[in-house]
């Protein structure tokens, strides 16, 4: 029975399985964190000032179109195999989603709300941090959640990028038995759903009480 074999593979190699899961999570967390560190300030600045909006939207669309394996392949040529290679590919995967959602979230705060804040004497920085960003949190979190699920579901390509300490150690190796493959594939799906659920809890925690009635949508 293939399912029994898959389970036995997981149960017999707890150290290796946990190591691969931890590696996959670490790689994903680092990649998403870098994507957030670039995309949220950039998206917020563009949404607040309304400058370079067209450039940002088109740039995000171009990034979104880049095939991950192609980035890995070109990366091998330009900066070699390893952690950095797969990380760059994953940052490029997550960045456009977070950038677009942050920009749209900040730019689409009702003009009346922003005017009122300005009328109360708030500075531009105060408006951004105390009015626009709190309003944008549902959209920003939706972008981060989708981006994270994408990254976790793709991080196994680390096996192709020459960084073996992920679920890719099995998934990118077609010579292994199907049972091992099944085990790791199911593990990857479970991992993606678990992290998505975790981020949903984070999203509820960081959403200001006044915003909770507004349903969030991914762009």
């Amino acid at each position: 029975m293939i399912v029994v074999d898959a389970w036995r593979f997981l149960a017999d190699n707890p150290g290796r399985v946990l190591g691969d899961v931890a590696g996959q999570l670490l790689l994903s967390v680092v990649s998403v964190a870098i994507a957030i560190a670039i995309a949220v300030p950039l998206g917020a600045a563009i949404g607040h000032t309304r400058r370079f909006a067209l450039l940002a939207v088109n740039g995000a669309n171009v990034l979104r179109a880049l095939p991950t394996l192609a980035i890995i392949a070109i990366g091998i040529g330009l900066y070699g195999v390893g952690f950095v290679n797969i990380m760059v590919a994953l940052v490029i995967l997550a960045l456009p989603l977070i950038l677009t959602n942050t920009y749209v979230g900040v730019a689409e705060v009702e003009p009346g709300t922003v005017e009122a804040a300005r009328g109360m004497g708030m500075t531009g920085w105060q408006i951004l941090t105390q009015v626009e960003l709190p309003h944008a949190i549902p959209l920003i979190m939706a972008g981060i959640r989708t981006g994270t699920v994408f990254v976790i579901a793709t991080a196994y390509l680390a096996g192709t990028a020459g960084y073996p300490h992920t679920l890719g150690s099995v998934i990118t190796n077609p010579t292994l038995p199907v049972s091992q493959l099944l085990a790791y594939t199911v593990l990857a799906v479970v991992l993606a759903f678990a992290v998505d659920g975790l981020l949903l809890i984070v999203q509820r925690a960081v959403t200001p009480a006044g915003m909770k009635i507004v349903p969030s949508t991914a762009a």
Partner: peptide, 24 residues
């Protein structure tokens, strides 16, 4: 992918990217 001469990788990668951009 395992070759030290990287033109093959670059060619295939860039073509895949161009295809995606044109389709987009």
């Amino acid at each position: 992918i395992g070759n030290t001469f990287i033109s093959g990788l670059i060619s295939a990668g860039v073509l895949a990217i161009l295809l995606a951009l044109v389709a987009d």
